[in-house]
Computed example of a mutant assay.
Amino acid sequence: MNATELWTPARWADNGPVKLAYDRLTEGVDGDPLLLVTGLGVSRRWWPDGLCRALAARGFAVARYDQRDAGESTHLPRQAAGNPIDALLRRRGATYTAEDMTDDGTAVMDALGWCTAHLFGASLGGAVAQPTAIRHADRVRTLTSVSAVPGDAAGLATLRHVRLGTLAKLARVKHPDTPQGDIEAGVQVARILASPGRPFDEAATRDLLTRLADSGVRDKGAQSSQIGAQWHGPAIDTITVPTLVLHGEDDPLIKPSSGRRIAARIPGARLVTLPGMGHDLPEAVWDDIAAEVRRLADQRSVSA
């Protein structure tokens, strides 16, 4: 089955002036609703199809969407130039808030006809999914946060969870504003974030990126807006939905201590560290991840 058959055609959900592109996996459509929340700057098509199929095989109906300022969703005017490192430290003048980004996810759920769903967020997506479970607790069945920082962290409190050397490498990724430049930048970023103990498959990565046509890895302005979106609500300690925290033991960008910190702060959260995993989602862990998410959903069903 090719990618065009595996996913439905793109559709759009509305959150005020923002249009959010989303699609659904054509396998497992009768399963439990599960919404994937995408990472920094990139389109929803970065999610590995194999992981999505593994989740479907475990009884989930999988949907994914482009966050604002990414992929086919609305790209908003920038209030200021800059780079993602500056945005981590900036407390004022942000283009939008984390509250806006949590509302985006529920707008997609509305468009899908889902009253509630399991949330699965990776990297920035995990930091968005966490406050979504606070602001929209009645819409979230379970929360899975992967390779993320605490969703209520800001400024220097965020930097303590990030490997600054890797952040500096990402900031130096510069390629021409061309389709080929997008591909080369994507390959470079994927190599930086890849699981260090596993061979990096440059050919497969290049093939994927050639089909993606995604400039998000180069768009520092969009990344800055997403990172600069501050959360003004309660602390993640107030999350009450069943929570799973996954983190790669060899994550080159977000320290594993961040995962431990999130799990310690969210009541009843379960932490699973994945040996050999970096800041990516390599094939070797797909089945393990799907099994853990299924276990979480089943525990929720028993306790409900």
Rank of each mutant, 00 (worst) to 15 (best):
G50F: 01
T38N: 15
A87P: 01
A80P: 07
L271R: 00
H175S: 13
Q223E: 11
Q130L: 01
A117W: 02
G50R: 10
D66I: 03
R163W: 11
A127F: 03
T102N: 06
L193D: 13
R261M: 13
L208Y: 10
P199A: 12
R270N: 10
H118L: 06
L25Q: 03
D219K: 07
A56N: 10
G165F: 01
R163M: 13
T205G: 11
R260I: 12
F60T: 09
L112W: 07
H232N: 15
D110G: 10
W47M: 07
P199E: 13
V245D: 00
A3Q: 15
Q180G: 08
Y65A: 01
D49P: 11
A13L: 00
E249V: 03
L25M: 03
I183L: 11
S195D: 07
R270H: 13
N83M: 08
D86A: 13
L35C: 00
V62H: 01
E283D: 15
A81H: 14
L246M: 05
D207C: 09
G233S: 10
V128G: 06
L20H: 04
A63D: 09
A213P: 00
L124F: 06
L274W: 09
L209R: 14
G181R: 09
V285D: 07
K19V: 00
T95R: 15
S224W: 07
P48A: 01
G248W: 02
T238K: 12
H136T: 11
G105N: 11
A98E: 08
G151N: 05
H75C: 00
P267N: 08
L167P: 11
V29R: 15
F200C: 01
A229G: 07
A13C: 05
A168K: 13
E184N: 12
V108Y: 05
R53L: 14
G41I: 06
